[in-house]
């Protein structure tokens, strides 16, 4: 029952299949009724050491729909970090004022470290290029909701499979559910071999493509990603691939009826706006699902929902 209570969430691999399904089950309950005053009297700290408006607003609205209060900061320059306070000191101080800490930090591994020094649980809202597990959970929720199940899904992952952390987490998580992976990327941005090994070790299949159109008729989910300039060590490498894939409405003609297009947002130009009105476009609902998933996580970790 209380398998999630008081446990930090740093990486999606911290959670078992059962843990994941439990969070999604609670999220479905919040989707039916997002305004349940269960967080009254609770304080959630929201520490954003780098700005990420989208993720922060999603967490903060999750808390406020549940009647909880929020303390914290939206960027490092408004905080004592600016004065040189160590991460440990910030976490220890803030834990005196809150029941749970949501943290975004540009340094890789900062969330794991915070979870080790903090007396209250930590939810990682992104640690540099490393992990962003709540994104992964809302992706899983969206797949389950649109397909009726997480099992045996054919998923196409498109774009930057090399640096894209959301892709790596989603591969790891979907490997628990017998997925078949269709990996579409430029040669230079293929999924790293360590992540591919994760698939093989789960006894599952992956197929690699450079052409997007050939996979579209065969998959249940198309997971588009943005090719992020800031992840590239070499700007020339970025220039060569930045417009590699653009999904247009007419390309979806032969897709399966149950197929849905997902994207972690924000998009740049990898999904043409003419897709937005297609009922198979799901990325805005996907973002909405983030609120329910975050409500579920907070409630489960505080032991308020089982």
């Amino acid at each position: 029952m209380s398998q999630l209570k008081n446990r930090s969430l740093v990486s999606i691999t911290d959670y078992s299949k059962d843990d994941i399904l439990k969070v999604l089950e609670i999220a479905a309950d919040f989707e039916k009724d997002p305004r349940q005053p269960i967080l009254q009297g609770h304080v959630i700290a929201s520490l954003f050491f780098e700005p990420s408006t989208r993720t922060r607003l999603s967490f903060e609205s999750a808390v406020q729909y549940l009647g909880g209060s929020i303390v914290g900061f939206a960027s490092a320059d408004s905080s004592s970090v600016q004065k040189g306070e160590s991460l440990k000191d910030t976490i220890l101080t803030v834990s005196n004022y809150s029941d749970l800490i949501v943290m975004r930090n540009p340094l890789d591994g900062s969330a794991r470290y915070a979870s080790e020094v903090s007396p209250v649980p930590i939810i990682n809202a992104g640690d540099g290029a490393n992990q962003h597990p709540t994104q992964c959970l809302l992706d899983l929720y969206s797949i389950q909701k649109t397909q009726g199940t997480l099992e045996n899904i054919h998923i196409a992952m498109v774009g930057d499979l090399k640096y894209g952390r959301t892709v790596h987490s989603l591969v790891q998580a979907m490997s628990l559910f017998n997925a078949t992976f269709h990996l579409v990327s430029p040669e230079s941005l293929k999924l790293p071999s360590a992540v591919k090994r994760w698939i093989s070790e789960a006894g599952l299949e992956y197929h690699q493509y450079t052409d997007l159109s050939e996979v579209i008729p065969n998959v249940d989910i198309i997971y588009m990603t943005r090719i992020q300039r800031e992840r590239f060590p070499d700007p020339l490498e970025y220039e060569a691939v930045k417009n590699a894939y653009v999904l247009e409405n007419k390309m979806l003609e032969n897709s399966k009826d149950n197929m849905r297009v997902l994207h972690p947002l924000p998009r740049v130009n990898e999904i043409s706006t003419d897709v937005d009105d297609n009922p198979k476009a799901y990325y805005f609902q996907q973002a909405q699902n983030g609120v329910y998933v975050r409500q579920a996580l907070i409630a489960a970790i505080l032991g308020l929902k089982q």
Binding site: S86, L87, D108, S110, Y113, D127, A129
Partner: peptide, 9 residues
Amino acid sequence: KCVTNHQQI
């Protein structure tokens, strides 16, 4: 970018 290179850890 590892946290151990920026904090005393």
